[in-house]
């Protein structure tokens, strides 16, 4: 009898243990790859922060190509992972189709709105952060020409470019903004060679500050800017450390915080749309020891003033995706 009891107890414990082990959160990185030093890496940092704080573990998966999204989502959901966080708008359509099949699993998607009762959609006001780094670029440029290199040509990235151009104009109304996109498909997020080529071409057009919003492609842009002895601006993660003295600043998009929050909420993840704006600390510009010598007190004061003005609502930065037009630049 006692043996039976202890056996039962042990199996109950085991069952509990299995449930606890199963409710692991999971993160899926898009084709740009976990180590893109930018968007996906920010997500990884957020997940890691959660893991070190709670001592928990999480599953992670890198997409190999566009066609495997559905399989990855389904298999993670079936493995019991909860919640499942994915980075990138490209998961939107697939998640919309898969989420209803797993009503007990919570999903979070970054950069896209998916209207399902078990999905949390996290979007950022990238135009505000880009405006701030645009001002910084306008103030730092000696030639009066600055560059923007986007990844894939989609409304989301035009939103970055548009906010940036407005910021540049706010600092220097005479400035010229050269805008380029790397490509039209997913590979544009992971093409550092092409990024470097575009950076060189923009430099030859006079640009002396280049903002890259292109995932892993941006690594090539920053490298080229450092080689050409001009300034660059990183994106999503703080990229100032990659080439100290050449990276003017980075437009921070706190994907790490979004992932951290989602993991922390766990299985109780609140569905709905979550807008991370400047006021909420969702976007910002990066200052640290690596770029301190590049930023004068005057520049910093002006950008801080603009930041306060945006938060108070005094300055409105145009959101490209609200009407697919940009008052400050032509794409």
């Amino acid at each position: 009898m006692t043996l039976m009891k202890s056996l039962l107890g042990a199996s109950a414990l085991l069952a509990l243990g299995t449930v606890a082990a199963l409710a692991e959160p999971a993160i899926i990185y898009d084709v740009g790859g976990k180590n893109d030093k930018s968007f996906n890496e920010a997500a990884f940092n957020g997940a890691t922060k959660w893991a070190t704080e709670t001592g928990g573990t999480f599953k992670e998966l890198e997409m190999q190509n566009e066609a495997q999204r559905e399989q990855a989502l389904r298999q993670l959901a079936e493995s019991g992972a909860n919640p499942i966080v994915m980075t990138g708008f490209a998961f939107g359509d697939t998640l919309g189709a898969v989420a209803p099949d797993y009503p007990d699993t919570k999903f979070a998607i970054i950069d896209m709105v998916v209207d399902q009762p078990n999905v949390k959609s996290v979007v950022f006001t990238e135009e505000q952060g880009s405006y701030l780094v645009g001002m910084m670029a306008g103030l730092a440029s000696k030639t009066g020409t600055v560059g923007f290199i986007g990844g894939m040509d989609i409304p989301l990235i035009r939103k970055f470019g548009c906010g940036y151009a407005q910021g540049v104009m706010a600092a220097n109304p005479e400035a010229k903004v050269v805008l380029n996109m790397t490509g039209t498909d997913g590979s544009a997020w992971n093409n550092p060679v092409k990024g470097a080529e575009i950076a060189k071409s923009q430099q030859s057009q006079g640009a002396d500050v280049i903002y890259a919003a292109a995932g892993a492609t941006g690594v090539g842009v920053l490298q080229a800017a450092a080689d050409l002895k001009i300034l660059s601006i990183g994106v999503d993660s703080n990229q100032n450390y990659i080439h100290p003295g050449s990276v003017l600043t980075s437009m921070l998009k706190r994907v790490d915080n979004a992932v951290y929050e989602a993991f922390k909420e766990g299985a109780d993840l609140k569905a709905g749309i979550n807008v991370m704006d400047l006021a909420a600390g969702g976007v910002d510009y990066a200052m640290d020891d690596n770029n301190a010598p590049l930023v004068t007190d005057d520049m910093k004061a002006k950008v801080e003033a603009a930041k306060a003005a945006i938060i108070s609502g005094e300055v409105k930065v145009h959101d490209y995706m609200s009407d697919n037009t940009c008052p400050a630049a032509q794409f």
Partner: peptide, 11 residues
């Protein structure tokens, strides 16, 4: 499989 045509559908 995909019920729509995506990039790189041939894998």
């Amino acid at each position: 499989g995909a019920h729509r045509l995506v990039m790189n559908s041939v894998e």
